[in-house]
């Protein structure tokens, strides 16, 4: 019974589907309003997804690799404006070195800031002076800005609340200076110098 219902529906929807595929050149999304990725970005997305697939399966066996290629290709075609970690990544040796240094710096900052926050939490008086300061960033690429905001957020003590053009609004547990340039040097400059080499 279900089968018949499904077949009926299928026949009805088949004509619709042909129209749909013509109408929406990109299958799932309405892309009239948002930027389409070029071939290079799609290739990058495809490779990243394939890498994740291999990591998920934990094996390089041929069968799972073939299935991974099919799945990644399907997602790349369907979700054409997707980003990946390496979109807009400059594939130069300096960028790779900067990437490694960035992660080392990031984890160092993460642990340092965690200890600082631990001292605040454990001290009975809670020596905090919260406030929202405004800092400036020079980064232009979407991934670079996302990574910068995420890095600032993940370091305890600072929390990105809004990005508006070149301005970042950052909530700090202890505000050290309200001057824009000084706050920029304290909060942003460390991450930015690496991210600028990586993403531009």
């Amino acid at each position: 019974m279900t089968a018949i219902g499904l077949i009926n529906r299928d026949i009805v929807s088949y004509s619709n589907q042909c129209i749909a595929i013509k109408q929406y050149g990109e299958l799932l999304l309405d892309t009239k309003t948002r930027p389409k990725n070029g071939v290079r970005k799609r290739a990058v997305l495809f490779v990243t997804l394939l890498l994740f697939w291999v990591m998920l399966n934990g094996t390089l066996a041929v069968d799972s690799f073939i299935v991974g290629i099919v799945v990644s290709l399907a997602i790349t075609i369907l979700f054409c404006s997707g980003l990946s970690f390496f979109t807009e990544f400059r594939a130069t040796p300096q960028a790779f070195i900067a990437g490694i240094l960035y992660y080392i710096y990031f984890f160092k900052e993460l642990i340092k800031a965690n200890f600082r926050l631990a001292v605040i939490v454990l001290s009975p008086l809670m020596p905090i002076k919260p406030g929202i300061v405004k800092v400036r960033t020079r980064l232009k690429s979407r991934m670079g800005r996302l990574m910068l905001a995420n890095s600032i957020t993940l370091t305890p003590g600072t929390l990105t609340m809004e990005i508006d053009g070149e301005w970042l609004y950052v909530h700090c547990v202890t505000v050290e200076s309200t001057d824009i340039d000084e706050a920029t040097a304290q909060i942003v400059a460390g991450f930015e110098s690496y991210l600028e080499v990586m993403y531009g």
Binding site: L49, W53, L56, I75, F79, G82, L83, L146, E162, I163
Partner: peptide
């Protein structure tokens, strides 16, 4: 929505789809 959520969702949606397929 804000820029961060938009960029983040463009990053995460392919990953979620990949996890679903896996």
């Amino acid at each position: 929505s804000g820029e961060l959520l938009t960029t983040g969702s463009y990053l995460l949606v392919p990953l979620i789809l990949l996890l679903g397929a896996y």
